[in-house]
Computed example of a mutant assay.
Amino acid sequence: MTKKALITGLTGQDGSYLAELLLEKGYQVFGLVRRSSTSNLERISHLFDKIKIVSGDLLDQCSLMDVITETQPSEIYNLASQSYVPLSWTQPALTAEYTAIGVSRLLESIRRCRPDAKFYQASSSEVFGQPDESPQSERTAFRPRNPYGVAKAYAHWMTVNYRQQYNLYACCGITYTHESPRRGTEFVFRKITRTAAMIKLGLAKELKLGNLDARRDWCYAKDAVHAMWMMLQQEQPDDFIIASGETHSVRDLVECAFNYVDLNWQDYVVVDPAFYRPDEPVQLVGCIYKIKAELSWKPQYSFKQLVELMVDHDLQELRGKESHVEGALVST
């Protein structure tokens, strides 16, 4: 029998990669999309003839129940949220509605309409905020420092509570920063790879960044979604850290990207205090011992491979647009 999967957040980076993975594995894939999202389908345009888009909204419990009843999925992946941290400060209530309360609505819909479905909740390293240890494990205390992290912490613990109270197969994957060519350019990793490509092609002249010594745990989105799928293939539900297990500085990232296009980054990078984030006395880096030991998962792409993959993509995409670019050089 063909497995059915329902993905919320289908139009995002992770949703599009997960849909591709599930289709490769023979699933029938349904994607939950808000009416207002129908104009933002670029990441899944190549999948239109292979997936079924269903209308629903994490703000509307009835729509979630209707979709689950109609599609009867065996696996449900909740990847939808307001996920841009700075925006969570300007829209904290909206972030809470989608990222926190929306998960409560979804869990309750599963309990009522499809209690035997397996559920994956996309948790985030932002739940740790300013942790008291590094690296962080599944046992590290949550200390979120922004509205997005607070909302994700609520969603995480609601998932755990529904698992314990109602015996649902419900898992949380605590994902650290993961990147891909489908990542928005407002995120620093993609901003750097794209601007390096633009400078190489003469389409930009400088790159403005904040603290070059800030460190992050970065991995490839394709590796992350494979871990999500693996989590729902186990006999018993559990929560796992999904990360690379190592950190690199923004300086490392800049140097790697610019070296790849044979440029000296110091000639182009401008440090702008406006881009600085608060000091991070303890680094956010995931301990992936548990997921390696229990699921035999580990990242397939190294940091260097990921940087080069993204620069290659941006070079190719920008070369296709060069003939349409007008005007003088721009700063990014």
Rank of each mutant, 00 (worst) to 15 (best):
K118R: 14
Y120N: 00
Q121L: 02
A122W: 01
S123N: 05
S123K: 01
S123R: 00
S124F: 00
S124G: 05
E126R: 02
E126S: 10
E126Y: 08
Q130K: 10
Q130I: 12
P131K: 06
P131D: 11
D132Y: 00
D132G: 13
E133R: 12
E133Q: 14
S134V: 06
S134M: 07
E138P: 07
E138R: 01
R139V: 09
R139D: 14
R139A: 13
A141K: 15
A141M: 14
F142W: 10
F142G: 03
R143T: 12
R143L: 14
P144T: 07
R145N: 15
R145P: 02
N146M: 11
P147M: 10
Y148K: 05
Y148A: 08
Y148G: 09
Y148D: 07
G149H: 06
G149L: 03
G149E: 05
V150K: 02
A151R: 03
K152G: 10
K152E: 12
A153R: 03
Y154E: 08
A155K: 03
A155Q: 05
M158P: 01
M158A: 09
T159M: 04
T159Y: 02
T159H: 02
V160E: 02
N161E: 13
Y162M: 06
R163H: 08
Q164D: 14
Q165S: 13
Q165A: 11
N167Q: 15
N167A: 14
L168S: 06
L168R: 05
L168E: 04
L168V: 11
A170R: 00
A170H: 02
C172I: 00
G173E: 09
G173P: 05
G173V: 06
I174H: 05
T175Q: 10
Y176G: 03
E179Q: 14
E179V: 15
E179A: 13
E179D: 11
P181T: 06
R182Q: 13
R182T: 04
R182M: 13
R183I: 09
R183S: 13
R183D: 05
R183F: 08
R183N: 11
G184Y: 10
G184P: 09
T185Q: 10
T185F: 07
T185P: 07
T185L: 15
T185S: 15
F187V: 09
F187Y: 14
F187L: 14
V188R: 00
V188Q: 01
F189M: 08
F189V: 10
R190Q: 15
R190V: 05
R190G: 04
R190L: 09
K191A: 15
K191H: 14
K191I: 00
I192F: 02
T193Q: 01
T193K: 04
T193W: 03
T193Y: 03
T193P: 01
R194C: 12
A197D: 01
A197Q: 03
M198V: 00
M198K: 12
M198C: 11
M198N: 06
I199Y: 03
